[in-house]
């Protein structure tokens, strides 16, 4: 009998989304963990940032965002789409917020998924002590790591934190070869949407051993309503999402400086 104590580990999530098809291979279930170290101004899930449970008012009704659950409870939902994972090569993706904010819980979720033979992935900023990352590694198949900007000052201006630790962790994860690593870039107008800025990230990504893919995720403002719902101001209200043509241009710019497979969208 395998030890299944991981089922008892508790953590805080704010959503579980089934049939996700742009967040790792195949058909996946995303568990959104609450709390993040960054405060990206374009964040489409602003309710994910605070670890505290919050109230969100939308369309006249108020709902509580965030609940404390055990890994076992989460897995009940995750297991419902087992057939879809098997057929599509999909699985479980942890997103957030930042799953490294709750490393024990995240590690237990990944372990539980592996116990059931489910592929695992995380979408993460890697902005955490490397020890937290190491906790997840034994049961992590795919790390989708966001690199937002190579200039630390600008990074801090738009996300609230500098980028040194993120870049250092990216190198260590790549070197460890413990899991597959994909670099993803949220392409945000006025922040990082020039060919030069994207090329700088692409060049960095190309130095990471084992990395083969670079995903450029076009900014969208679908989270805008939620800022208001949380009583916050959305500071990027004036931004237009990048056009298809511009995304294509950036893709070509990235391809010009690296040999990674560059794709638009996750």
């Amino acid at each position: 009998m395998m030890n299944t104590d991981f089922n008892q580990v508790r953590g805080r999530i704010f959503d579980i989304q089934r049939y996700s098809i742009h967040d790792g291979p195949g058909i996946r279930t995303i568990v959104f963990l609450k709390g993040c170290f960054l405060r990206c101004r374009w964040c489409c899930n602003p309710e994910s940032q605070e670890f505290a449970i919050q109230q969100l008012t939308m369309n006249g009704s108020t709902k509580t965002v965030g609940r404390d659950v055990t890994v076992g409870e989460v897995m009940q939902d995750v297991l419902k789409d087992m057939k879809y994972y098997q057929r599509s090569g999909g699985g479980l993706t942890l997103s957030g917020g930042e799953c490294l904010g709750q490393p024990e819980f995240a590690a237990a979720l990944l372990e539980a998924a592996h116990y059931w033979g489910i592929n695992t992935a995380i979408e993460s900023t890697a902005c955490a002590p490397y020890e937290s990352i190491q906790k997840l590694m034994p049961h992590l198949d795919l790390y989708m790591l966001d690199i937002k900007h190579m200039n630390s000052e600008k990074h801090r201006a738009f996300t609230g934190v500098p980028n040194e630790r993120i870049l250092e962790n990216a190198r260590r994860i790549a070197t460890s070869r413990d899991c597959e690593l994909i670099i993803r870039v949220p392409v945000v107008p006025t922040f990082n949407d020039t060919p030069e800025e994207i090329q700088a990230i692409a060049e960095f990504a190309a130095t990471l051993s084992g990395v083969r893919q670079l995903h450029l995720l076009p900014y969208h403002r679908l989270g805008q309503d939620k800022y208001e719902g949380l009583g916050r101001e959305y500071t990027l209200a004036h931004l237009e999402p990048p056009t298809n043509e511009h995304m294509q241009e950036l893709k070509e710019a990235a391809e010009a400086v690296c040999r990674l497979a560059v794709q638009i969208g996750g």
């Binding site: 989304q17 049939y19 996700s20 098809i21 742009h22 967040d23 995303i30 489409c44 899930n45 939308m58 369309n59 997103s95 979408e123 995720l217 969208h220 679908l222 989270g223 805008q224 309503d225 969208g265 996750g266």
Partner: peptide, 14 residues
């Protein structure tokens, strides 16, 4: 409607 990392019920959007 779904895009990467985000999904919403269409009718609840502004």
């Amino acid at each position: 409607v779904r895009v990467a990392g985000y999904s919403a019920l269409f009718t609840t959007l502004s």
